[in-house]
Design a protein around this nucleic acid. Structure first.
Lengths: 185, 185
DNA sequence: AGCATCATGTAACTTGTTACATGATTGT
DNA sequence: ACAATCATGTAACAAGTTACATGATGCT
């Protein structure tokens, strides 16, 4: 599903960042959608620099640690990102191990399965809290006078997260109900 | 995200299948969630056979084409599947390119973005139709007297698909509204 | 004539995950 | 004393994608 490349550019289009920053932000800005390892970030940044999509803005050097390399997006990088954003793309599949586990629940003791669902429901409740918090925070920071405020594009993404987690939690509740019904037979 | 292995076993736990069958069913039974290539299915089946999780039930040979190898799950395979199903696992991230594109919409002409969203909304409506059809079909086939009918575990999975696609479509509608508002400035 | 279906499989390539390595500094 | 943070990166492995190869048959 073509590319962390564009995930990196999406962040850099908003502000200059180092590879390290990107790694952190992935798990809090676009995310908790995405996740990347340093192994993907650093080589990709180098590649993009070679292709002229990003360039080094500055390098902070503290002798005792690796230089902090701040990258900024170039004109070409913005264009590439805009091109990708407008490029038609297929729909992604939901691919969630737990759905597969639910598919197997007929094989399993309903009591144990209930425990299992309750566990992951809890996880999704935690995620819901994170997303809700994020929506609230972004909404407070949004400048309603600026029609091109990037935050206006961030809110729907976080909002999707909220909706998705609510859906998941509700779905878990229904599952739990069905296991209770089944175990009382 | 550990394993087609269990996806294959999940199907084989319900009925014996060939690698070819599995490839087809992935995109219509568990799915449209999953997708696999033959490159993953055939080697994995061989590996699992070597480990005793599945075994050959029969081999149909038509001289003019490769033998059709029907696999069935073994006791050990069922146990492994049950073990995995009850194993606690982390929550998955939603990872959808279009969310990232939406995150970039502040960079882009709202009119063009609207077209883009409408396109993918259409795709999700198609998927919704598929899932709804599936839920209806499964519900009709469900045996309500048998508390261990595997179909009872399939319905929630398809139902998740329905809910998810509805959520996605509604989200698209909200996005479209926001682009219309923005372009009329 | 040409393409889709059935049915196995391999090969080449791209992505993603986990773990490691360095090494001073700051907080517990 | 010990872990976490900052900051770069490499290496080994696991998983996923795309394309290819075989080759008769049946459909348009």
């Amino acid at each position: 599903m073509s590319s962390i490349r564009y995930a990196l550019l999406s962040l850099l289009a908003r502000e200059p960042l180092s590879g390290y920053d990107i790694k952190l932000h992935m798990n809090g800005r676009i995310g908790p959608f995405w996740k990347v390892g340093s192994n993907q970030v650093y080589p990709e940044l180098s590649k993009m620099e070679a292709e002229g999509l990003v360039k080094l803005q500055s390098v902070e050097q503290h002798t005792y640690r690796p230089a902090r390399k701040l990258y900024e997006i170039t004109e070409a990088g913005r264009d590439a990102l805009i091109g990708w954003t407008l490029e038609p793309g297929g729909v992604e599949n939901v691919r969630d191990d737990f759905l597969l586990k639910a598919y197997n629940s007929w094989l399993v003791d309903p009591e144990q399965m209930r425990t299992q669902v309750e566990e992951i429901k809890k996880r999704h409740e935690e995620k819901l809290a994170v997303y809700s918090e994020k929506v609230a925070e972004l909404t407070a920071r949004l400048d309603p006078d600026n029609p091109d405020d990037p935050i206006a594009s961030t809110i729907p993404v976080a909002e999707f997260g909220v909706q998705y987690e609510r859906l998941y939690i509700e779905w878990c509740d229904n599952l739990i109900k069905s296991f209770i019904a089944r175990s009382s037979k």
